[in-house]
């Protein structure tokens, strides 16, 4: 990591202009304009079908493999317009993603976490050992699996697989980490442990946290966006959002659970 002057901490790592996403002509998200700053945790809250997951998919160009998905507008990540860059795989390896349902790949726990480093060319066993232990420890999974790193990752329990997925995302050493409702399959105690880790990780990377737990956004996010029915209703400081400073009545209603 290159440490720059403190001023750089406020530079946007990701900026989104007039983003519009549709599936086969059906609009899923439109009119999104936002900037995400380096080393912040950016929370996105909102009910189902708000377009949160589509937003994440557009950022790392998953639309390439999603038939019918169309993305308009400009997404600029680390100085590159993601639509025009020449090597989409390089973009994806710089962005870690954790999907809502845990996906333990059908290989050993060790290989799950060592996959990304190996893909980018780390060969030495010593280096890999260090990365694997480090990432598993950060995902609060090391203590549970350290004695059976050679058993299958797909055989772990749901919550363990979710943490394995997080460890795998961390092993990419991403610049941006996108978590999509990561706590769905994780128990509250573990969730808290992972949340603590995220607060630390913020020193090293930018985090987008999509969550349907409003309080989780409150605990973690520096700023929070509220998505509703395919549009971004409001972006605000999490603090002011949760202390009655929301500018849109719908946001207040959603946060206070008086919705619909």
């Amino acid at each position: 990591m290159v440490e720059e002057a403190p001023v750089a901490a406020a530079a946007p790592i990701l900026s989104v202009k007039d983003l519009e996403i549709s599936y086969g002509g059906q609009k899923a998200l439109s009119g999104v304009n936002l900037e995400i700053l380096e080393n912040e945790i950016f929370g996105i809250i909102g009910p189902a079908n708000a377009g949160k997951t589509s937003f994440l998919k557009a950022i790392n160009r998953m639309d390439i493999f999603t038939p019918g998905m169309q993305v308009r507008g400009d997404i600029t990540f680390a100085g590159h317009n993601v639509k025009h860059l020449k090597n989409v795989y390089a973009l994806r390896s710089a962005i870690g993603v954790v999907f809502p349902l845990p996906v333990g790949l059908p290989m050993t726990i060790y290989d799950n976490v060592a996959l990304a480093p190996r893909l980018r060319g780390v060969k030495s066993k010593v280096d890999l050992d260090i990365i694997v232990e480090h990432c598993l420890a950060r995902a609060a999974l090391w203590d549970e699996v350290k004695d059976r790193l050679n058993s299958l990752g797909s055989l772990l329990s749901g919550g363990q697989q979710q943490r394995l997925t997080i460890a795998r995302a961390l092993s990419q050493e991403p610049i941006l980490l996108m978590l999509d409702e990561f706590s769905i399959a994780v128990d509250p105690v573990t969730t808290m442990r992972i949340e603590d880790v995220l607060k630390e990780l913020k020193q090293e990377m930018t985090i987008i946290l999509v969550t349907n737990l409003v309080q989780q956004a409150n605990r973690l996010a520096d700023r929070t966006a509220f998505f509703l029915e395919g549009s971004c209703v409001e972006i605000n400081d999490t603090q002011s959002l949760f202390c009655g400073g929301a500018t849109d009545q719908r946001t207040t209603d959603y946060i206070e659970g008086r919705f619909g």
Partner: peptide
Amino acid sequence: MNHPVTTDFDRRDRDWYMDK
């Protein structure tokens, strides 16, 4: 680390050509 993540998303490396 010896193999840092690159932000040069226009650089086509061996893996990219292999893929093609």
